[in-house]
Computed example of a mutant assay.
Amino acid sequence: MTRLMHRSETLRGYSLLSPTLIFMGVIILIPFGILVVMSFWTQSGFEFDRSWTLGNYRDMLERPIYQALLGRSLYISAVATVATVILCYPMAYYVAFHVHRNKMMWIVLMTLPFWTSYLLRVFAWKVVLGYEGVINSALMSVGLIDAPLEFLLYSQSAVIITLAHAWAAFAILPLYVSLEKIDRSLLEAATDLGDGPIMRFLRVTLPLSLPGVISASLLIFIPTTGDYITPALLGGPDGTMIGNLIQKQFGAINNWPMGAALSISLMLCIAAICAAFIVLTLFVRKRIT
Rank of each mutant, 00 (worst) to 15 (best):
L54N: 04
E47C: 01
T191Y: 06
F277Q: 05
R203G: 11
I161S: 02
E180R: 07
F201G: 11
A92H: 10
L70W: 04
Y89P: 14
G196C: 01
I182N: 08
A124S: 12
M91V: 13
K248E: 13
V79Q: 09
F277R: 01
F123L: 15
M241V: 10
W167I: 11
T84E: 14
A275W: 09
L245I: 03
H100S: 13
E62H: 11
L120C: 13
P19A: 03
K126N: 15
S51W: 02
G259E: 00
L208V: 08
I214L: 15
M199A: 13
D195F: 10
I76E: 07
L280C: 11
L218F: 06
M91C: 14
L219I: 12
L149W: 06
A158C: 05
V79G: 07
L210E: 06
N136K: 04
M24D: 03
M24I: 13
I172D: 12
V37Q: 06
I65K: 08
F23E: 01
S178R: 07
I278T: 09
E150A: 10
L268Y: 06
A80L: 14
M241A: 04
L280V: 11
R184P: 14
V99R: 06
M241E: 12
I270M: 12
V142G: 11
K248G: 08
R287L: 12
G259F: 00
V128Y: 00
A166C: 12
E132N: 10
S44F: 02
Y89W: 03
S265G: 12
T20C: 10
I253H: 01
Y154F: 12
W106K: 06
T84P: 08
L152D: 10
S141I: 09
Y14C: 14
P237F: 09
T10D: 05
P174D: 11
L152H: 04
M267N: 08
S157I: 12
P231H: 08
A232K: 01
I278L: 14
I27P: 06
S155Q: 09
T2F: 10
W115Y: 07
D195W: 02
D183H: 07
I246M: 14
F23D: 01
Q43F: 02
W125F: 12
I270F: 04
I270Q: 10
M105N: 07
A83D: 08
A83W: 13
K286N: 14
S73V: 02
A83V: 15
L54M: 13
A68I: 07
I264V: 15
S77M: 02
N254G: 01
P64R: 02
R3E: 15
F97W: 15
D49K: 02
D195G: 03
L149R: 05
D227T: 06
W256T: 02
L144Y: 14
Q156S: 12
L262V: 08
A171C: 15
I76C: 11
L149S: 07
Y131H: 06
I264D: 03
G45R: 00
I172T: 05
I242R: 03
T116C: 02
S217Q: 08
